[in-house]
Amino acid sequence: MASAAADNFVARPDEGNDPYNLIVTDLVALIGHIQASLRLIESAIEREALLAEHDPASNIFVLDDITPRYIGASTALKACDSGLSIALRLLDSTAPARILN
Rank of each mutant, 00 (worst) to 15 (best):
P19A: 02
L51M: 05
P96E: 10
D81W: 07
G72L: 07
F61M: 08
A6T: 00
L91P: 00
R69Y: 02
A97N: 15
T75F: 01
C80V: 03
L30E: 07
V62E: 13
I71E: 06
S93C: 03
F61N: 10
F9W: 10
V10D: 08
L38A: 02
I23G: 01
S58P: 09
E46K: 12
A49R: 09
I71F: 05
G32E: 06
P96M: 04
Q35P: 00
S43F: 09
L40F: 04
K78Y: 09
L90M: 11
D18Y: 00
M1Y: 03
I31S: 02
A97H: 04
A57N: 14
F61Y: 11
P19H: 03
K78P: 00
E46F: 05
L50S: 14
C80M: 10
A97D: 15
P56A: 05
N17E: 15
L88R: 01
L30K: 14
E15Y: 06
D26Q: 07
E53N: 05
D92W: 09
D65C: 12
I86V: 13
I66F: 09
N21L: 15
F9N: 14
L30N: 12
A44Q: 09
L77C: 05
P19C: 01
Y70V: 01
Y20D: 04
L38I: 14
A73Q: 10
L90Q: 10
T94I: 07
V24F: 04
R12H: 08
H33A: 14
I31E: 01
P19Q: 07
F9E: 12
V24I: 04
A52Y: 06
A52H: 04
L27P: 02
R98E: 02
T25R: 15
R47M: 14
T75D: 13
I99V: 10
L63V: 15
A44M: 08
I66P: 06
V62I: 13
V24C: 02
N17H: 11
S93D: 10
P13H: 13
P68A: 04
I86Y: 11
D55F: 08
R89W: 01
P13L: 15
S3N: 12
T75I: 06
N59F: 11
E46D: 12
L84Q: 00
I23R: 09
L22G: 07
I86W: 05
D26P: 02
H33Q: 13
L88W: 01
S74D: 03
A29C: 08
F9Y: 11
I23T: 11
K78A: 05
A49P: 00
G16R: 13
A11D: 09
V28I: 13
A44I: 03
Y20L: 07
R12Q: 06
H33N: 13
A73W: 01
S58D: 08
D18S: 10
A79G: 10
D18A: 09
I45L: 13
D81P: 03
A5C: 10
A76S: 15
F61W: 06
H33S: 13
A95K: 04
T94L: 13
